[in-house]
């Protein structure tokens, strides 16, 4: 048991526009490890497989329980959170790569600002009169809440857009996460007051028409959010809006 090791092949990059390179680390096996606990072990002893002391690997993480979405990377070719990637369930050598659809900041850290900008574009909020006491909101039935809650679990982690063949660094597709958020706010009793503004933004360039229906997004979503249902629903709402506007009804 004590001789057991874990081998990592990590795609590293010193900064944006720098060349990337693979570096291998072999570390002692410890039970109940996940990718993050291993990266932490490397920090404590940053020596690569050639015995050379190197700078510790840079990656992003925060909650370590798969609710903050920070630590997404490509692990053995699959996009997922590194906190919930348990070593015992991974084939070795374990390859770690940064998400490919976003600019690399350094090593495994990427810049996902584009996803947050998409939330601004689709007006992902409920308009409110103020933060003073105006009593309770509308009554909402449990089934409706169930659908909304599922959509609201989206942690902007980037898995869906990483797996999407239409989302690329050189286009402006908003991606499945943002489309699904538009659905969430369009189904809220007061959120729907600006439903048409959201639909207009989705009918614009880089909106819903850019979806190629590959359905990869729903396959990789760590929270099992029904993203393709959301895209279909927003497609329906957009078509309705299109015809209504066309005939001015």
């Amino acid at each position: 048991m004590s001789n057991k090791t874990i081998t990592f092949k990590i795609l590293r990059q010193d900064g944006p526009n720098q060349p990337s390179f693979w570096e291998t680390f072999v570390i002692p096996y410890l039970p109940n490890s996940n990718v993050i606990s291993c990266l932490m072990d490397i920090q404590k002893n940053p020596i690569n497989s050639e015995g050379k002391k190197v700078r510790p690997v840079v990656w992003e993480c925060n909650c370590l329980e798969e609710v903050c979405g920070t630590c997404t990377m490509v692990i053995n070719g699959k996009t997922r959170q590194s906190c919930s990637a348990l070593i015992d369930k991974l084939m070795q050598p374990i390859t770690l790569q940064p998400l490919s659809k976003f600019p690399v900041v350094r090593d495994l850290a990427v810049d996902r600002s584009r996803m947050f900008e998409a939330l601004k574009r689709i007006k992902a909020w409920v308009p409110m009169d103020g933060y003073h006491d105006l009593g309770p909101g509308d009554k909402i039935l449990p089934d409706h809440q169930g659908v909304a809650y599922k959509l609201s679990e989206c942690m902007t982690c980037g898995c869906c857009v990483e797996a999407c063949p239409q989302y690329s660094r050189d286009n402006n597709f908003v991606g499945a996460a943002a489309i699904s958020q538009a659905r969430l706010f369009n189904m809220h009793p007061t959120g729907k007051l600006i439903a048409n503004e959201r639909l207009d933004s989705l009918m614009d360039d880089g909106g819903i028409a850019a979806c190629g229906n590959a359905q990869n997004c729903v396959e990789v979503c760590p929270k099992s959010i029904p993203l393709t249902e959301s895209i279909a629903e927003m497609g329906r709402q957009s078509s309705k809006r299109f015809w209504k506007t066309l005939f001015q009804i």
Partner: peptide, 21 residues
């Protein structure tokens, strides 16, 4: 009041069969 405010903001709180928080 804070719970009502969050409800108005769209937090998907669990509901009773009647639709209350």
């Amino acid at each position: 009041f804070i719970i009502y405010l969050l409800d108005r903001m769209g937090v998907p709180f669990n509901r009773t069969p009647e639709g209350n928080l």
